[in-house]
Amino acid sequence: MLRKGHIFKWYIGIFLVFLYAPAILLPVFAFNDSSIVSFPLKGFTTKWFAVLQTNETLHVAVGNSLMIAVTTALFSTLFGVLAARASTRFVFPARRSIMGFIMLPMVLPEIIIGVSLLVVIIQMGFELSLWSIILGHILICTPFCIAILSSAFMNLDQSLEEASFDLGQTRWNTFWLVIIPLVMPGIVASLLIAFTISLDEFIIAFFLAGTEPTLPVYIWGQLRFPAKLPSLMALGTILLVLSISLLLVADYFRRRGIRKTGIENTGGFL
């Protein structure tokens, strides 16, 4: 019994090392005073972060990515709210098939989505632009938003809505006064998740990027140049810290939502 428990703990420990290996190495090389990304380490420096500040192309790429991520977050959360509300509150014909179809991009290889959007845009005679990337990102982020928002809507006691209606409110006001405040934490979490996914997405962006690169497309281009690698490590570190902070904020809102509705905290994120 005791020995078996130990084996288990050893396994979990080794697994965590495997899981965290890249995430730990990223900041290590970001602060390493060497232009080659390899061991042994040379010394501490912050110069790779300084390099980032003066890189014009990088700034353009960051700007593009931020614009795409914000737009994607807004639209996919909007689509997510509609779909999650419809699927948790109403019974309608072919509900399971419709939901399955909308959730499909979650399991579809991204290359398929990238390729098919590329074909449509070319065949329709449109130009590739940041908007084509936004459309692709909304498509893949919406299922994640629905997954988060569905649990928020499902935790909502339907009699709350009926109570509001019974007390004389209209359906519209009920939605804004009761439903939205109670699912707000879910909405915030959905916005942040969609933002984070979009910011990091490469495959679709690579297929659909015209002349303007996004941040991951820019990184991809730089990976070929060994001299650029240390500053990419610094960039990766910043992105990692940013992602984790956003996730912590999202999780905070999710927990607050749970506390508010008085439901026991059982599950984790996603």
Partner: peptide
């Protein structure tokens, strides 16, 4: 339901969790 002269006490009570006691009572 919102135009009927009836009001309901629900089995789960359906107290709005994001409002205080007074706000709940003032809702209607």
């Amino acid at each position: 339901a919102n135009k009927r002269p009836t009001n309901m006490v629900f089995q789960s009570y359906a107290i709005f969790p994001h409002m205080s006691v007074a706000e709940n009572v003032a809702y209607g």
